[in-house]
Design a binder for these strands. Structure first.
Lengths: 221, 221, 221, 221
DNA sequence: AATGAATGAGATTTCATTCAT
DNA sequence: CATGAATGAAATCTCATTCAT
């Protein structure tokens, strides 16, 4: 007789405004308490709804967590796709992507916390629709980097995937530090440093063995 | 997050061998199940001791978690400190550090999992003794980078902290990917790619700063 | 067991057709899921009405359950009362009752499930109007059995209540088996077996010790 | 990472006495409140242990329920098997089984409640080990009935399975009535009524096969 | 008359942790 | 030293039920 129906992970958006309220509350609480420590009760209180109401909109605590990035990342990627074509040159595009990436986290510190401290460590997130969008936004980098190679702006021997890992890793490292230590107060300011370092490397130009050309002017006798 | 009275965080190492067994078991279990999902019972079973015995050696589940990196990171850093002086040139030292860093995670995949997916998201880890060692190992990078500036191997205008973030972030990004997706099968192989990119940047050589041409006009007698 | 204020147990039959639809749906769901496991939501879906509508017709889940037998048993008993007078002889009447009893469950397997697996275990059902009708239908048996005693068809020393318990128990046992195990595929076919066994007992006739009467004819001297 | 181990439904009998205490408490509470209405908390209070302790011994509320009949039915059946061989004649054996059956419930009214009102309606019970024993005890009846046919004590045309259904159903009907209505105060007293009715039927003796009268005419000398 | 939306009210279950032996 | 046994303390999640529209 027992017969659990496999709960539909898609709840009807009865009242989209309330869903958004709950999501914001969840983001706030998760960002401060972590996933396990945060309770549905905390979130319900913050959102000023009953706990049961949360379950009307999200079928589990984890689904609630995973729903947090969905909209923001979607919007982020759409805007990227919209603007990129207007930017000239792969290097400029790359700088733009880096800036956007940093701004995303700078403008949404709670979101940054949730992503860096909670979602990144949760393998189930990989199965999420939101993660699909993350992947698609990662492709931006690859496309721009390949464009730069074609246009001769970037070294042809570089591996776009490695470069992306470098950028992505750098950004996430900075964001995580900010989340945990508050240290790099401002993130977007670092856009140029990051870009320039990546673009030029750290080798001192002087290091490039200067060509010493000794020209001996000899007076012809 | 939860922050109970910190108890005697130093338990008598009654039987160091058993402590090590427990730690290995914990690493194994945590790596596979995550912190919350893993149970003391799981770990006890794996270590073939009773749950109560675990509490003889570690005063809480979280302390057990934090104890995992202690030894490995200590040993890692000591070896770094030991070898570094024998390496000539900041660039070579930097390459060495990157290699060691990648090897650390490559050689200890369970440890990598624990660090990337669990510890990084736990703010309490920052208060840990082990984290102190992590910080000290982070200083290696700064020292080497500063040495490189002094020795004119690296650009004087670069920010060592930013460069370190770049390297560190890149490495952790790669390691996390490997933990979650298994993707970069081999990590240490990437040492040179990472180093070279960082060293030379991605700008095509054609656009590199113009050669310095020193013209010495010598009057021939 | 739980016994909340009994509310207005008589709801206005706003739309009798809809009430019937809901009842059929409830019977279907309860029969398959049991009382606790079945949800109002399940029933609402099956009946294609909203959950709130169910509460327009039935004031609680339990009242809904108890409403299921009401009509069917009423109709069953009315028909019994109607036909019985036309049957000649207590034995024939008894056979008729058994047949009807078996047919009731055979023709309504969902109803059989609900009665055997759910209602029988619920003490609150005894306070129900429907149970009153069950009792009155039980009286049929008593009346017929007593008639049989009077008419000398049945042993005068038998206890009608015990006999009824025997019949009733036998039938319910068979029906329950069918509900749970599907085993006696056909129920009404068993009417005669049941009746004959009851009527004749299981003692072999040969077993009745033959009376040996020795008659000595003596010639008077 | 999530990885629920499929709980072993066999818990170590750490302390058999405590397990028995819990079982008795559960029987008591379930008998009075029904399965759903009874709470683990109720049972824990009655057994004077914590709720968690109950879960040390039984892995779920339902398993706790199913554990109730295990021992009692086992013991019941063992005793039956032990005594049966000493009884002479199928009829006597049958009377014995009926008596034992009634006594089982008479002597354990809480147990009777649990079986009649709760277990009988739970299809999962059929998958239970205890149910296996019930089945084996049901086989007693069949064996005795078949023996009676062979020995010519019982009619050869009777269906043992039907007869068993009759007895079993009758008994359960009486026990259920007693559980719900308290009505047949005494159960074992009914043994003979039940047996005799079954044995002789309810047909009036007048209609029974005519007596055999042997008349020996002897000529006196 | 019908229902979408909201929630009150708990119960089961899980573990980390303790303590007496 | 080691551990078997016991439990305190919550948290998630489920539904029957209500009410405003």
């Amino acid at each position: 007789m027992k017969n659990k129906t496999p709960k539909s992970s898609q709840k009807n958006p009865k009242n989209p405004k309330k869903a958004a309220t709950i999501l914001k509350a969840a983001e706030h609480i998760f960002a401060r308490k972590g996933f396990q420590t945060a309770t549905i009760s905390d979130i319900a209180k913050k959102a000023k709804v009953s706990e049961a109401t949360i379950y009307e909109y999200f079928s589990s605590k984890e689904e609630l967590l995973f729903a947090i990035p969905a909209e923001i990342i979607q919007h982020y990627q759409e805007k990227n796709r919209e603007i990129l074509p207007y930017i000239h040159g792969a290097a400029n595009k790359l700088r733009f992507l880096i800036h956007r990436h940093l701004a995303l986290y700078e403008d949404n510190p709670d979101y940054a916390n949730v992503v860096m401290l909670i979602l990144k460590g949760n393998p189930n997130f990989l199965k999420t629709e939101a993660y699909r969008v993350v992947q698609s936004s990662a492709r931006n980098y690859i496309e721009v980097l390949e464009e730069g190679i074609k246009s001769n702006e970037f070294r042809p021997d570089m591996d776009p995937y490695m470069i992306r890992a470098m950028i992505w890793g750098n950004i996430e490292h900075l964001v995580t530090r900010k989340s945990l230590l508050g240290k790099p107060e401002n993130l977007t300011n670092l856009t140029d440093t990051l870009f320039n370092t990546l673009f030029n490397g750290i080798r001192t130009t002087a290091e490039q063995p200067p060509l010493n050309i000794n020209v001996h002017l000899t007076r012809s006798e």
